[in-house]
Design a protein around this nucleic acid. Structure first.
Lengths: 227, 227
DNA sequence: TGGAGAACGAGACGATACGTCTCGACTCCC
DNA sequence: GGGAGTCGAGACGTATCGTCTCGTTCTCCA
C-alpha cells in the first residue's frame, strides 16, 4: 500500500506516544502509561526498524527486537500485542520525525498548474519509495495490513488517508479554477494516478520512473479517448 | 494484489503439475517427478486452501497442512520450499479449474463499445473479489508477494500479467477503432482502472461496488479535465 | 511374477520463537 | 522511607520449524 506512504507527512495530530496498550485485553490491569520508559520505547522503535531492514519481516522476532533494544520481552508485550503493531508505531514515528525535519508545514503545491503540481509530488513519491530507509518497513506493513484487517485499517487511517486528503484538496482547488470537471469526485479521481503507482511498487509489476508518473498524470487528466 | 486476479482465467499454458521441486537446492538429489503421487498433491492443495480460509495464513502451518491432507511432512518439503509456494500453486490450480468450468475459451468482450466492455469485466472482477472462496487465499498470496520478492514475481508473471494482457489487447482493438488515442500506451492505460480497484480491495480503503468501477472507467476514458 | 528403488505416511528429533511468568533493581509519588 | 509499578533479564512449557529416520506402498522393469 502506501501509494503515498511517502511524500512528506504533514501535520497529522502527532499521535502521542500512545497511552493505551494494544494489550488492553480483559483481565490484565492496564499498565500505567505515565511511568513508561521513553528510553525503552525509542530503543524498541529503532531496533524494530533496523531489524526489518536487515533480516526482513519474518525473521524480525519479538525476542530479537528485545535483545537488540536491550529490553526485556515483557516490556514489549506490556505495550503491544504483536510485532506488526510495534512496527506500525515505529514507522508512524519515523514518518513524523521525517516530516518535522522537512520544516514546519509542508503543503501540497498549488501553482495554478494542476498537471505540473501533481507530477512534482508524484516524482517525489517515487523517490521516496526507492529510499531503502522506507522500503523495507513500508513493504512489511503493507503486507501485514493486507492480511491483518485491524492493522490494515489503522495503517490506512493513520498514514494513508491523511496523505490522500491532500490530493483531494488540491483537486478541489483545481475544480474551482476550472481545470477539473465539477462533476468529478476528487476522492476517486486521485486514485487514477496514485493507485497505479502504489500497485507497481507493491507488486513490482513495472518500473518506477518519473516518466511513468508523468504519463499517469497526462492520461488521467486528458483521458484515453480522443478529444 | 490481483487487481484482476479474478476474472475467469483464460488459456494460460496449463502449468503442468510442476516437474521441478522448488526444493532444487544444491546437494539434495532431485526427486523423480514421474513417480509423484497425484493424490497427495491434490490433497495438499485442498488442505492448504481450506486452512487459509478457516484459520488465516499465519496459522496455516506446514504441519497442519500435512496433517489435514493425511500426508507426511516430508512429502511437502520434498516438493515445495515454503508454505507460500504451496499456496501459490494451490491457488493457480484453483484458478485453472475455475476457468475450465467456465467453458472452453473465455475471451474479453469486444462489442465495439469499449466503455461498456470494460465496465462489464470490472463488475465481474468486483464480484469475484468478494467471493469468499477466493478472498482468503488471494489476500494471503498478495501479502506474501509484497514481502517475498521471488514469490511476488511468480504471482505477477503467472497470474496477473496474463490477465492484464487481455486488457492490453482490448485497448489496442479500441485504438484501431478510434476509441482510444493512438499515442496511448495500453499497458499503462489499463492501470488507470485496474489498479484503483486492486488497491481498494487490498487496503480496504473504500467500498467495492459496481458504481465505483463504472466511475473509474468513465473518468479514465473521459479524463478529469473539462473537454 | 518378482525384485529394486523411490516416494509415501508417520513421527522422533534438536532448534527457535512464542507468550507467560518470576525475580531483584530501580524510580517515582505519597 | 515505604509501596506500587515499570524495568532488564531470563526460565518455563508449548508450538512449529526443517531434518532425519523408520517401515510401507507403489511402479517400473527384468
Amino acid at each position: 500500500m502506501s501509494p503515498t506512504s511517502s511524500a512528506p507527512v504533514p501535520d497529522q495530530p502527532a499521535t502521542p506516544p500512545r497511552t493505551t496498550p494494544g494489550n488492553q485485553a480483559p483481565g490484565r490491569p492496564a499498565p500505567d502509561s505515565t511511568r513508561r520508559s521513553e528510553r525503552s520505547r525509542r530503543a524498541i522503535y529503532d531496533a524494530a526498524l533496523a531489524l526489518v531492514g536487515e533480516v526482513g519481516y519474518p525473521r524480525t522476532t519479538i525476542e530479537a527486537i528485545a535483545s537488540r533494544a536491550g529490553v526485556g520481552k515483557q516490556t514489549i508485550y506490556r505495550w503491544w500485542t504483536s510485532k506488526g503493531e510495534v512496527l506500525l508505531e515505529a514507522f508512524l514515528d519515523l514518518s513524523q520525525r521525517a516530516a518535522e525535519e522537512l520544516g514546519e508545514e509542508w503543503v501540497f503545491p498549488d501553482t495554478g498548474d494542476l498537471a505540473a503540481d501533481l507530477k512534482l509530488v508524484l516524482r517525489a513519491t517515487v523517490d521516496e519509495m526507492l529510499d531503502p530507509r522506507f522500503e523495507a518497513p513500508a513493504r512489511a506493513l503493507a503486507a501485514q495490513g493486507v492480511v491483518d484487517e485491524q492493522l490494515g485499517r489503522t495503517f490506512v487511517t493513520q498514514l494513508l488517508e491523511p496523505q490522500l486528503q491532500l490530493y483531494v484538496e488540491r483537486l478541489k482547488s483545481a475544480q474551482e479554477q476550472g481545470q477539473v470537471r465539477r462533476d468529478v469526485d476528487p476522492r476517486i479521481a486521485l486514485e487514477l494516478f496514485v493507485s497505479p503507482l502504489a500497485q507497481r511498487w507493491l507488486q513490482r509489476s513495472g518500473p518506477l520512473t518519473h516518466e511513468y508518473t508523468d504519463t499517469l498524470v497526462d492520461y488521467a487528466l486528458g483521458g484515453l479517448s480522443p478529444r
